[in-house]
Structures are given as C-alpha cells and as structure tokens.
Simulated assay, not measured.
Amino acid sequence: MTYTIDETDGVLVFTLNRPERRNAINTELMEGFKEVIEYVHNSNSVRFLVITGAGEKAFCSGGDLAEFHSLKTEQQAFGMLSKMAEILYEWATLPVPTIALINGAAVGGGCEIATACDFRVVAREAKCGFIQGTLAITSGWGGATYLFERGLRHDRALKMLIDAQVYDSGQLEEVGWATKVYDGDREVALAQFIEYMRTINPGVHKAYKEIEIRKWAEKDLKKRVMEEVSQCSKLWELEAHHEAVNRFLKK
C-alpha cells in the first residue's frame, strides 16, 4: 500500500508510504489524498489532520518524475497538475487544523504540500525547498500561491521560489516557513505541538479555519492557484524542461 490512514484520539495521520521512491506522489497517492479528505468531511471525531512520510529520509520528493515524465504537452501536463492542485485546494480548505510533520526532505511538490498545510513541524535534519526552477518549471500545484498567503515577508518568499534551492531547518525557521523545528522522535514532537490545542473545543478551531477560508474565497485563491497551474503547464511543454528531467533521471 502506498499510503496509510490511522486515527487515534482525534488525530488522523496520513502517511505517504513509498520510501523507496522518497515518497514521491503518483496517481495512487493522489487517490489517497482524496480518501483522506472525504474521511475528514464525513467524520465527527477528527480534530487534527497530520501528513508525514514513511522512513527517515524523505517527507515527500514531489511528483514521481518516472511516472509523469511521459507527459509532454501543455495539455497533458495541465491534466495532471490541475488534478493535484484541486486536491491540495480541498486539503487547504478543510475545516480542521492540518499539520505537515516533516520527517525528512520536502522538495518540489513535497514543499508545496507542506505549504498548503496550516502548520509545518520540521525535523532538525530535514531540508526543504521549491526546487522546481532547476527543472525549468515553476511550482504547479499551487505552492507559490500558498507561500505568498502564509505571512512570509514578500522578499523572503520570492527568494525561496527563485533560488530553487533547499533550505536547512534553521533557514526555514528564520524565514518563517517552519512553524516549529524538533529533535528526536516525531510522534513526541507532534504530541507536544498539539498539547495546548487539544484543550480547546474543536468548534473554536473550525471557526478560526472558516475565517481564513472566507478570506481566501474573497481573494479568489482557487482561481489564482489554477492560473499558477497554467503557467507551469506552459513551461512543462518546453524543451528546457524535458532536457532537465532527462539529466535528473540519468543521475
């Protein structure tokens, strides 16, 4: 199974389970995201939604290039990118707090997924970054749009995107992307992070989430996400991208 879903005491944990592929997103994992989103909407018990990666090396390395490199045209790319962007929008607008428990590298689309979460709890040794530029494309699942919504100083957010480099946990904390950096066991870190939140009535959490969701609706967030997808799709079709991916796959 490429993912697991486990609920304990109101904490729903969605684990990407492709450690041999650095938990890269494929079509099956996209369906896993849909399953989790539906689970949350149909449950009265879920108070927190957590996403993490199996193993210790990677949270998520983004889209599985071995699978998606077969997409060549703008139209083909838009089909895949828009599908995941729709999923991430549904994830970002869930009525419960969402937490990216980042156990290892979160790069490319993995960084986009984490940015779409309300909180990012990052392992000390983890490195994260919007490295899409090294493949001659932009973020394509809405990650840049969410990054500019997360309250980072504009110049820091833009530099994070344009640099296309990985940042260590200290840098991620400094720029304001990491909510908390932890040492040791991830489950202990998660328990400590939500310790005080647990004492608050979940109706309060949902009310605050609704305030943010209303703001995003008024600011046409989904429309802006889909425009980001369109930009990435145009770049995806160009030879510069295909050449960059070929070089990456030959490493």
Score class of each variant (00 low, 15 high):
141 W>Y: 14
173 E>P: 01
172 L>A: 02
138 T>A: 13
188 V>E: 07
167 Y>I: 05
191 A>W: 07
180 K>F: 03
145 T>R: 05
124 R>G: 07
176 G>L: 03
125 E>N: 15
158 L>Y: 05
186 R>V: 10
163 D>G: 07
123 A>W: 04
169 S>W: 00
148 F>K: 11
174 E>Q: 09
188 V>H: 13
150 R>N: 14
168 D>M: 04
133 G>A: 05
192 Q>L: 10
150 R>L: 09
197 M>A: 15
150 R>Q: 13
123 A>S: 06
161 L>C: 03
141 W>G: 05
177 W>H: 03
187 E>C: 06
120 R>L: 05
118 D>R: 11
184 G>Y: 07
147 L>R: 00
195 E>W: 13
128 C>P: 02
154 H>L: 11
197 M>R: 10
169 S>I: 06
127 K>G: 07
117 C>I: 11
186 R>L: 10
151 G>R: 03
151 G>S: 05
147 L>P: 00
169 S>H: 04
122 V>T: 01
157 A>V: 04
118 D>Y: 08
177 W>V: 04
162 I>A: 07
200 I>A: 13
190 L>Y: 00
159 K>D: 11
160 M>R: 11
185 D>G: 06
178 A>P: 08
121 V>S: 02
126 A>Q: 08
128 C>V: 14
194 I>V: 07
119 F>T: 11
148 F>R: 12
148 F>S: 06
135 L>F: 11
185 D>A: 05
191 A>L: 01
123 A>F: 02
196 Y>E: 15
120 R>E: 12
146 Y>G: 04
155 D>Y: 10
137 I>S: 12
164 A>C: 10
118 D>I: 01
142 G>L: 01
159 K>F: 04
152 L>W: 00
175 V>K: 01
193 F>E: 03
125 E>P: 09
170 G>N: 12
168 D>H: 09
161 L>Y: 06
156 R>N: 12
187 E>D: 14
186 R>M: 11
163 D>E: 12
142 G>P: 04
138 T>E: 14
134 T>R: 15
135 L>C: 07
125 E>M: 14
126 A>L: 05
179 T>R: 02
200 I>K: 09
174 E>R: 14
165 Q>C: 12
163 D>N: 14
121 V>Q: 03
180 K>N: 09
170 G>S: 08
125 E>F: 04
184 G>K: 04
158 L>R: 05
148 F>H: 12
137 I>L: 13
127 K>D: 06
127 K>A: 12
136 A>I: 10
149 E>H: 09
186 R>K: 15
121 V>L: 05
194 I>S: 00
172 L>F: 01
142 G>S: 01
159 K>C: 09
193 F>V: 08
158 L>N: 10
165 Q>L: 14
176 G>Y: 02
181 V>A: 07
191 A>M: 04
185 D>L: 02
190 L>E: 02
132 Q>H: 15
168 D>N: 15
182 Y>E: 00
137 I>F: 06
136 A>R: 12
140 G>F: 08
159 K>I: 05
189 A>P: 00
189 A>W: 03
176 G>E: 02
195 E>D: 14
120 R>H: 06
167 Y>K: 11
186 R>S: 12
124 R>Y: 13
168 D>Q: 08
165 Q>H: 13
154 H>G: 09
162 I>C: 09
175 V>Y: 03
159 K>P: 10
